[in-house]
């Protein structure tokens, strides 16, 4: 370990930002993957892993991901709910690995809802 400078302190702080966003800090976006037995069977865990990998790869620090139980629409799993601080919650259905990446790019990062993937009443 070499001796630190003030800039090194700031760099360490930045590196850890996502961890402290996770531990009760303020976040910009929250993604909830529905992980009921139905969700898991339909591939929710794969969707989750893809999303986490993508978040790491893109070094996104202001987004947290969590899981919740069955959302009540078992036939449309895997599902996810996206909440941006400036927008109400949006539910996406019938997800796969490809779709979740698109949702991350367009909705989470750019604030554009992808209508065709959302839950249509």
């Amino acid at each position: 370990m070499s001796k630190l400078t003030v800039n090194d302190l700031k760099k360490i702080k930045e590196d850890y930002q996502s961890i402290f966003t996770l531990r009760g800090g303020s976040y910009r976006a929250k993604v909830t993957i529905h992980m009921g037995t139905c969700g898991i069977a339909a591939g929710a865990r794969k969707v989750m892993n893809t999303l986490m990998n993508e978040i790491t790869k893109r070094n996104i620090k202001d987004t947290i991901v969590t899981i919740s139980g069955c959302a009540g629409l078992c036939s449309h799993e895997p599902m996810a709910t996206i909440e941006l601080t400036e927008m109400g919650p949006v539910k996406y259905v019938d997800l796969n690995e490809e779709k979740i990446i698109k949702i991350l790019e367009q909705h989470v990062l750019s604030g554009k809802i992808i209508k065709e993937y959302t839950l249509i009443e």
Binding site: V6, L9, K10, I12, K13, D15, Y16, I19, F20, R23
Partner: peptide
């Protein structure tokens, strides 16, 4: 909130910026 044995986690919470 932090791992008490990790200086990095302390630094991440504005640690040692007061010293700086």
């Amino acid at each position: 909130l932090i791992d008490a044995e990790s200086i990095d986690e302390y630094i991440a919470r504005d640690g040692y910026l007061g010293v700086a």
